[in-house]
């Protein structure tokens, strides 16, 4: 009985906070736009009884999804989002792995401090941090001023409102999500494994490549998914840093919803984004499962 309750809690949570909203969004994506409040129809009218229900379902269709296929803005945005998310994940990995490695090799006494430094940015609002990047990257921003003052450049660099700014924003924002799982994998790594590898004829580098790297793989995979999945749907960073030149599906969704007030199309965009995300989420779960088995 108690066990059933314990298992039921996360499921209730999942149903209330994920499944129900998803079904609502799915329903809207199957509706048509209307000048009404809410701005779509049909509306479910339960006072009509059974007839109302059948009328409601008969009016649902896949028109919005068909519409997404007619305009190349959408699939281009999806592709662009995938590319930006993938590339920034790789950059985050390249930046995050050495940080995690350095932390895991650091003196035991230092580790809690380093760990706190990694999560310290979370203590400020995400929006404020993105705005401050605007201050840093803009043409009159800190970066350009300093570089010009140093004489490295004459003209200000155009970083703001380019994909580069988006990459910088995403890498900066999601770096802790990459560092923490890799650090946790590396920290568990027994030093004697590396000594054993050297003892058996490896150089320092091959020992890293044959032992450290494969043993931190579960952390790498986890970190990559933790960066890739939210980066794919990201809209604040491209909106604030990317300007009009950066296509990302999150931004498109935002505009459909709030600028065009076309809830049904926006919902269709969201449903497809979710379907795309399901693949990496399932893969991520698999990875976690395997990592747990390997430890068990």
């Amino acid at each position: 009985m108690r066990k059933a309750v314990l298992i039921a809690i996360p499921y209730l949570w999942l149903v209330a906070l994920f499944l129900v909203p998803f079904l609502i969004v799915l329903k809207i994506s199957l509706s048509d736009i209307a000048l009404a409040r809410p701005p779509y129809m049909p509306q479910l009218d339960l006072t009509q009884g059974w007839a109302g229900l059948t009328a409601f379902f008969s009016e649902l269709d896949l028109d919005n999804f068909a519409f997404l296929a007619t305009d190349d803005l959408y699939w281009k945005s999806y592709l662009s989002s995938l590319r930006i998310a993938a590339l920034s994940t790789l950059i985050t990995l390249a930046v995050g792995y050495p940080i995690a490695y350095g932390m895991a090799r650091a003196d035991h006494a230092w580790r809690p401090t380093l760990l706190m430094l990694v999560i310290l940015p979370f203590w400020t609002s995400f929006l404020i941090r993105v705005y401050s990047w605007m201050g840093i990257l803009s043409n009159e921003g800190t970066l350009n001023t300093v570089l010009q003052w140093l004489g490295v450049i004459n003209e200000p660099l155009q970083i703001m409102n380019t994909p580069t700014a988006v990459y910088i924003g995403i890498v900066y924002t999601y770096l802790p999500f990459m560092v923490l799982p890799i650090y946790s994998a590396l920290e568990k790594l027994d030093d004697s494994l590396l000594e054993a590898a050297e003892d058996l004829g490896c150089s320092r580098f091959t020992a890293f490549w044959l032992v450290t790297w494969p043993l931190s793989r579960s952390g790498i995979v986890a970190g990559c998914f933790l960066v890739f999945i939210p980066a794919l749907g990201e809209f604040v960073i491209p909106s604030l840093l990317g300007g009009s030149s950066t296509l990302m599906i999150g931004k498109v969704l935002w505009e459909e919803f709030f600028n065009n007030r076309d809830w049904p199309v926006a919902s269709a965009v969201a449903v497809i984004l979710l379907l795309i995300l399901i693949i990496p989420i399932v893969l991520f779960q698999r990875n976690e499962q395997k990592a747990r088995e390997a430890e068990g």
């Binding site: 027994d190 004697s192 000594e195 050297e198 003892d199 058996l200 494969p214 043993l215």
Partner: peptide, 20 residues
């Protein structure tokens, strides 16, 4: 002589088997 060049092998206290 570095460890990987010595004709000496060690069996570690923790065994240090490669888990992967």
């Amino acid at each position: 002589v570095p460890p990987n060049k010595r004709p000496v092998n060690m069996m570690f206290q923790s065994y240090a088997l490669f888990p992967h």
